[in-house]
Design a protein around this nucleic acid. Structure first.
Lengths: 220, 220
DNA sequence: GCCTATTTTTAGATAAGCCTAAAAATAGTT
DNA sequence: AACTATTTTTAGGCTTATCTAAAAATAGGC
C-alpha cells in the first residue's frame, strides 16, 4: 500500500508530534530524525500531502491527517511487535532490537501481524516499555514516572526508558538494570542528584542524575 | 550489501540454473519468472556482471559466479527459514508462506538469521520439503521420488512437492495430503494413470496422474 | 547457405527518492 | 519597521529500476 519511505516519513512525523507539544512538525526536525536533507523532506511532504496523509502548508510545518495517523500507528505497532519477537523469542538484547525492527516493520501483510500478535500472546508493551498500539489504532498509555522524581525510601518497579539510544541501553545492561527490576531508593545525594538504589534486594548501585532522569518506573 | 532487486535476480538465476540442465540461463526465462521485461533484465545483467556476481556474454545467457552463487544461496536460505517460521510458529498454511517469505528474505541481518535458525531448531527442510541451505552454503539434497513412479502396494512417506503453486497446494489441502503422511499405493488405474492411495491407514483417496507426478515421496 | 522468426540488446523515457546550490519566506533583534 | 540569521522551498541533477520501440544478433527450416 505505502512504500518503505512513505511509512518512515509518517512514523517520524508521528513521533515528532508526540514529543514536546508542537502544533506542527518542522521540515528540519524530520530531516534530522531521518538523517536526510531538508530539501528531500520538502519533496516528500508534497507527495504525502497529495495523498492526503498529512496537512501541509508551505513554511508552516505539517500535521498528520486521520488517514496518515492510522498508517503511522500501524507502522509503530508492527515495529514494536517485531521488537517483542526479537527480544522474547530470538533472545536479542533490548539494545539490538530497534535496528532490525526498522526493517521488519515494513513487511506488508496484515495476516502476518495478526498471527505474530497471537504468537506473542498479545503483548501490551515492547522491550523498552513502550505501549504497543492495538489493531484498532488505540494506544493504552500507562503513565510512568521518571526515577529521578522518586523520594528516598520509596519502592518502585522499572517499567520503561525515556532515552532509547544503544549506548544508554548498554549502560543499563552493565548496571544490570532491566525492565521488571524492583528498585528501592536508598539514598539521594544532594550534591550531584545521583541516587543509590537497592535492586531486587541485591547489592546497592549508584546511578547518576542523567541516568535517573531516563529511567521510568511505576508503583509496585 | 545487495539490494532487494539484486537478490531477487540472483535467486531467480539460481533457481533457473537448477531446473533442467541448462549450461546457461536465458534473458527471457529470467524476465518471465520475475514478471518483468527482457530489456529490464538485460540492464540488470550488465550491473550484476560489473559486480562479478554473474558471468555474462551478450546473447549467450548467464551463469552465477561463485560470489553470485553465495548470495543466491544465502537468499534461498533466508527464504526457507522464514517459511519454517511462518508455518511452524505462526501457523500459516503451506500455500501462504511463500508470498510473505518473499519479503522477509530481504531483511539484512546475519545475526537475525542465525538466531532464527537456532529458534527453529536448525530445520533441514522448509514446509514444502525443500532443503534449507546451511550457513556455509552447502545443501544436503535428499533425493525424493515422484509418487507416480511407485509400484502398487508399496508404502512411502510424502516428503515434498514438485509443483509449488498455491492452487496445487490448496488442492492437496482439500485431499488432506500433507508432508509426513504415510501413503500406501492401493491401486494404479491403467486407463488414466490415476492412483488410489491409502493415507495414514484411513480412507482411500483417488489422485490424478497430474497430482501424482507432483508429489514427492521417500521410503518409510 | 540463406531467410525468417525469435530472442536479445540498445536507445531514450519515466518515476521514486535523494542530492547541492540558490532563492524565498520567516523569525528574532534592535 | 528594518536588517540579519535561520528555515524552507525551488531548480536542476543523479541513481536505481523500470518501461516501450527499434535495432541487432541468433537459431531453425528449407
Amino acid at each position: 500500500m505505502y512504500s518503505f519511505t512513505e511509512e518512515n516519513y509518517l512514523k517520524t512525523i508521528y513521533h515528532l508530534s508526540q514529543q514536546k507539544h508542537p502544533e506542527s512538525v518542522t521540515t528540519n526536525a524530520i530531516a534530522e530524525l531521518l538523517q536526510t536533507k531538508a530539501a528531500s523532506v520538502t519533496d516528500m511532504l508534497k507527495k504525502l500531502s497529495d495523498k492526503k496523509l498529512i496537512s501541509y502548508v508551505k513554511y508552516q510545518g505539517v500535521n498528520l491527517t486521520e488517514k496518515g495517523r492510522k498508517v503511522a500507528i500501524g507502522t509503530v505497532r508492527k515495529h514494536r511487535l517485531w521488537e517483542v519477537f526479537l527480544f522474547d523469542k530470538l533472545k536479542f538484547g533490548w539494545d539490538e532490537v530497534h535496528e532490525v525492527a526498522e526493517q521488519l516493520e515494513h513487511i506488508q501483510s496484515d495476516n502476518l501481524i495478526e498471527k505474530l500478535d497471537a504468537f506473542l500472546n498479545y503483548p501490551t508493551v515492547d522491550p523498552h516499555g513502550d505501549p504497543i498500539p492495538r489493531k484498532d489504532g488505540t494506544i493504552k498509555n500507562q503513565k510512568l514516572t521518571p526515577l529521578v522524581e522518586c523520594k528516598k525510601n520509596t519502592q518502585v518497579v522499572m517499567s520503561g526508558v525515556k532515552e532509547h539510544s544503544v549506548s544508554f541501553l548498554q549502560h543499563l545492561n552493565k548496571m544490570e538494570l532491566s525492565l521488571g527490576k524492583k528498585i528501592k531508593i536508598h539514598e539521594v545525594h544532594e550534591f550531584d542528584r545521583s541516587m543509590v538504589l537497592m535492586v531486587d534486594k541485591g547489592t546497592k548501585i549508584l546511578v547518576s542524575n542523567e541516568v535517573a532522569k531516563n529511567i521510568l518506573v511505576s508503583e509496585v
